[in-house]
Amino acid sequence: MAVGLTRRRSAYLAGLLARRAALLVVLLTLVFAAVDLLPGDAARSTLDRGATADALAARRAQLGLDDPLPVRFARWIGGLATGDFGVSARGEPVSAILGGHLPNTVLLAGLAFLVTMLGALALGGLSALHPGRPLDRAVSSASTVVVAIPEFVVASLLVLVFALWTGLLPAVTVTSTSGRPASASMLVLPVLALALPQIGWNTRIVRAALTDELRAPHVEAAVLDGLSPWRVLTRHVLPGALPTIAAGAATSVGMLLGGTVVVETIFNYPGVGTVLAGAVLDRDTAVVAGTTAVTGAAICAVLLSADLVRAWATGRRA
């Protein structure tokens, strides 16, 4: 019986994994197709305007742009598996560009995610426990407001208040010689600009999930049994609300990564978003495709972990 259950469970998990992997392959194909259709190409955009036809042809051959489409796609996908993302139009390996900038973006998005979840759990939890009170109403209106505002608007208002009027925090990021932000205070405003809209979004999800769960009969029974509020919350309410909260958090990771493109540009932050914004203007296929591939893989991994949390929580309850 136990063995059968385990086997069924591992088949289920393998199915989840296969579905997320299939999604990733579809995504990579779409990315390559979209980038390959770009009007103009990397050879032209990286040479001077007056370059001769011969120089252009040589650059095209050097970048492998003359090969047929399937060959280029197979070479790109094959390279991804071995960590070879190709060479940018300026001749730098894409893996080196990503290696230099990705840690900064992971740091920024990771901190923003942490702030988002802490803020959302605290605010969502407080309003779910005191429904209809002034605090609940204030949190509800505030989250409606911040969810709707684009990150760059949040960013410019933050810069105005904290950098220009009060002078508490720096308005731009200075990069040290190691390629990292020069001081921790430079991270505060970018993290807040990314996190505030996401806190609004997740607070609503946390509040809704906890409110639904608080109404469930088993929670009522636990309260009537005289368990302490803390024990009721951690043992009886949170496990049931967890799948919904995890799904919301997984969606937020995608939105945070998208937000970095804008926020990094505003604060001149040395991350992948700044690189991507530049690469798109340069029509640099290899860089755009590599960045999207890495981002897509990261989002797949996050969605998969949200699936696993859901599987674990429902398995517990069954």
Partner: peptide, 9 residues
């Protein structure tokens, strides 16, 4: 799965 900004670009 595609982040909005990336899809946009």
């Amino acid at each position: 799965m595609l982040p909005t900004v990336l899809a946009l670009l």
